[in-house]
Structures are given as C-alpha cells and as structure tokens.
Write a protein that binds this DNA or RNA. Structure first.
Length: 276
DNA sequence: AAGGCGAGCAACCGCTCGTTA
DNA sequence: ATAACGAGCGGTTGCTCGCCT
C-alpha cells in the first residue's frame, strides 16, 4: 500500500474551502491519470493541497455517482437502523446507501437524525416509529420525487457481499439476487447505472461469468456483479462516459439488478437514459 | 438594514490499520 | 520482526447561510 517512490515536497499546504479551479484541476488530473498515490496527486495536479485533502475532496464531493441532496425516508430508516445496529460505523452505513458518503451520513446523523432519535427515545412508548416529518410537522423532503432515483431497499438486513476479486460466490442475506422480477423488484432500488460507474472505467466492459450463473463486470479497482432479468442479453456491451455526459446504451431496455461489491444493491432501468 | 444566533455542511485532525521494504 | 508510509475512518472544528429580532 505504501508509495515510497512518491515525491513529498515539503510545502505550505493550502487549507479551507476548495475553489472551482482547484476542483477542476483535481478532477482533470484524476480523469486523465486515474487514482494511484494520493500523496503524489497535489504536486502532479498542480495543487497546493496535501494528498489527504485531495482524497477527501474527491471522495466526498468530486467523485461521480454521488447523490446530493436531502435523504429520502428510506435512507433515513436505513441510517437509523444501521446506526443502532453498527454504531458510528459511518463507512459501513454509507456502503448501504448508494451515492452517499460516510461524511454525508455522519453529518446528517449528527445534525438531524440524532436529535430525532433522542427525541423519539425521550417519548418512548408514545410512538413506535420515527416519522420523516421535521419538528415543524412538515415533510422535510420536498425534493424526494426528483431525488429518489435511488431508493435503497426498505429491508435493513445487512447484505453479505463477498469479494468478487477473490473469486468467491456472491450471496446475500435475502433473495434480492433472484433473477426474477416481480417480488424482487419491490426490494430493488432504482439507480441510474451511470451513477455507479467510476470515472476511470474503460468503455469496454467484459462480463466474465461467476459460478452462480451471474456475471461480473470489472473496471479499475471495482468489480460489480450483474444479474440479468428477463429480456436482458448478458453479453451486451456497455459504454459510458464520465458524469453528466454519461450514457448507457443497452439495447432492448428492461431492468438490471446490480449487486455492488461495496454492499450497495440497485437496479437500472434503461428508460432513465433520457435523464442524461 | 444590521447584528445575533443556530443549523448544516465542508474540511481538518488525529488515530488506527494494512502494506511494503 | 519492525519501522515507515499511505489510506481510511471517525471526531471535531469552523465557515457559510438563512432566519429571527
């Protein structure tokens, strides 16, 4: 993991908020060179930041696929449930929330959910559930309709996602990996496939078969297990471009159910192509 | 209009863990 | 075995912005 060959010039690192120019430099550099050694990134990208700051900025803000905006009710439920279950394991909790970062989950918990949970516990017994309405009684998520491209499964049962790179078979704690639509779809979040595509992936994705009959697409350091629903040809090729220009061409349409190594689980509806 | 205040969020800090030499 | 290093994580800080007076 170490990167001893990286140059580490001693310099006065800039701190504070990132300017658009800095964002652009970092984004451009990573897009062109990919991720390697964070400590080398600032010098190579022409930034007066330390590598740690660059990493954080990328992960929490610049990385493609991030879902900005207010948490949906389902996301809130997942956070509250997993927090009760796992404690402050924000990265693990965030892994169950496609497009959310650990920092975002942590901030949301600290600034909002924690108070609600405390309040609910304070009045324990009087109410068994914590509603999504805020203290004013209003639904505090007016953008839900627009932002709910991603709707995590209502079940907070932890997904058991094994390591594809190790060649292990993928299993989950539920039947969410079933290749049939219908009941499974009810559990599947709808997520833009492009949201999940890392910027550094190549356009040509191979689909090696796994031993459970599913397929796996690999790019960069990420592996994604791809389960096909009816009407989907598994040997179809994908293409995508970065971020807003992203496009996924999947002839025939239909749903993809995607099981991600990181623990997320989603489905992709090609009808969403128009969203790009 | 201006100042105070609090909420929300971006980013920093310090620590731990994993990897490498 | 161990020191050195980078990456990752969680806690915390401090800035910004909107609301209220």
């Amino acid at each position: 993991m170490g990167c001893r060959t990286c140059e580490k010039p001693k310099m006065n690192y800039r701190k504070g908020l990132w300017s658009p120019e800095e964002d652009q430099r970092l984004r451009d550099y990573i897009l062109n060179h990919g991720l390697s050694c964070w400590s080398a990134v600032p010098a190579k990208a022409g930034l007066q930041r330390n590598g740690k700051s660059c990493r954080l900025r990328w992960i929490n803000y610049l990385r493609p696929g991030l879902k900005r905006g207010i948490f949906s009710q389902e996301e809130e439920q997942i956070v509250m449930s997993l927090q009760a279950q796992l404690g402050n394991k924000w990265s693990q909790i965030a892994a169950h929330l496609p497009g959310r970062t650990d920092n975002e989950v942590k901030n949301y918990w600290n600034s909002y959910l924690k108070k609600r949970v405390a309040k609910a516990e304070g009045s324990a017994g009087s109410s068994s559930t914590i509603s999504s309405a805020d203290s004013t009684g209003h639904n505090r998520n007016p953008r839900d309709e627009e932002s709910n491209k991603i709707t995590p499964p209502l079940s907070t049962e932890p997904l058991e996602v094994s390591n594809l790179d190790s060649g292990q078979t993928i299993t989950t704690s539920s039947n969410q990996c079933s290749s049939s639509k219908g009941a499974a779809d009810a559990l599947l979040p709808k997520v833009l496939f492009s949201d999940w595509l890392a910027f550094d992936q190549e356009n040509n994705l191979s689909l090696p078969s796994l031993n459970d009959g599913s397929n796996c697409i690999n790019w960069g350091s990420r592996s994604t297990c791809l389960y096909a629903n009816e009407g989907l040809q598994m040997d179809q090729q994908f293409s995508s471009e970065y971020e807003h220009e992203a496009a996924v061409q999947i002839p025939g349409g239909g749903f993809f159910d995607l099981l991600f190594m990181g623990g997320g689980y989603g489905s992709f509806n090609t009808n969403y192509d128009a969203c790009f």
